[in-house]
Design a protein around this nucleic acid. Structure first.
Length: 239
DNA sequence: AAGGGTTGCAACCGCCAGCGT
DNA sequence: GACGCTGGCGGTTGCAACCCT
């Protein structure tokens, strides 16, 4: 007997999330928190599987997500940590508050890999001649992955790893203003309500992004006294 | 301007570990 | 200890946006 699917996929939505789905999910989580992902879509009125909801929340909707490109320091640290941990992206992501494992994995696969390939050609690091034709094999008996690994070690052995975990925002600190947090979320939420009413297919992603950006910017601001406690008691606000 | 190729990223898939029964 | 359920994870895919010829 085969493995049981994570959920009954019949009749469920797939593919990109709509603004309305995002709104339902965020509203539900802010109001109720997360007890069981499998129950979330049912209770939130979503035609999605729990896994999909979890992924959407973690990778895209969480208010504490950091957006934008990776800084050089972050990139260096990713390289260092990848050398240390291998492809254990969640472990690596735990060093980057506001970054997701998926984001780091994507960044690694699309940007850093290429970068390292370029650096691999740099004789100052490898002390080997540049291979001019761009052929990956280059006639070497060493495999690509072990060669790349060796290069990474060469590069990253000289990198000081900054401890980003100490740069957490005040979310985890003791003194937080629950009321202010609730009221700000409400304010931004109302903004989304207004915007979503005029949303159409073409500006959908822009509108959604601006809302998320807004709430994330506010959460990320070090000057804010953000309280996660505020997220557990918002029934009145979102009714 | 067109269309073929490339890139970047959101989302999915399937396996695995941990937990409760 | 066996079993089932769930969340978490890493690999992979699909597709829109962008680039190049």
């Amino acid at each position: 007997m085969g493995r049981q699917p994570c959920c009954d996929k019949v009749g469920l939505n797939r593919g990109p999330w709509t603004v309305d789905e995002d709104r339902k999910l965020v509203t539900f989580i802010l109001n109720n928190g997360i007890q069981c992902w499998r129950q979330v879509p049912k209770l939130a009125g979503l035609l999605r599987c729990g896994k999909s909801c979890r992924l959407r929340w973690i990778n895209y909707l969480r208010p504490d997500l950091k957006r934008g490109g990776f800084t050089d320091a972050e990139e260096d640290m990713v390289i260092e940590l990848q050398t240390r941990y291998g492809n254990r992206w969640s472990k690596i992501a735990s060093h980057f508050p506001g970054r997701t494992d998926n984001e780091i994995k994507n960044h690694w696969n699309t940007k850093i890999k290429k970068k390292l390939k370029h650096i691999e050609l740099d004789t100052t690091i490898t002390h080997k001649p540049i291979e001019e034709d761009g052929n990956d094999n280059g006639g070497s008996s060493q495999s690509d992955s072990s060669k790349a690994k060796e290069m990474e070690l060469n590069i990253t052995s000289q990198i000081e790893v900054p401890d980003f975990s100490n740069t957490q925002t005040s979310q985890s600190e003791g003194s937080c203003d629950v009321e202010a947090t609730s009221s700000k979320i409400n304010e931004i939420w109302e903004m989304l309500d207004m915007e979503s009413s005029i949303v159409n297919e073409t500006n959908r992603s822009n509108t959604l992004f601006s809302f998320e950006e807004e709430i994330q910017r506010w959460f990320a601001s070090p000057s804010n006294d953000v309280s996660w406690d505020a997220l557990t008691n918002l029934e009145e606000i979102f009714q």
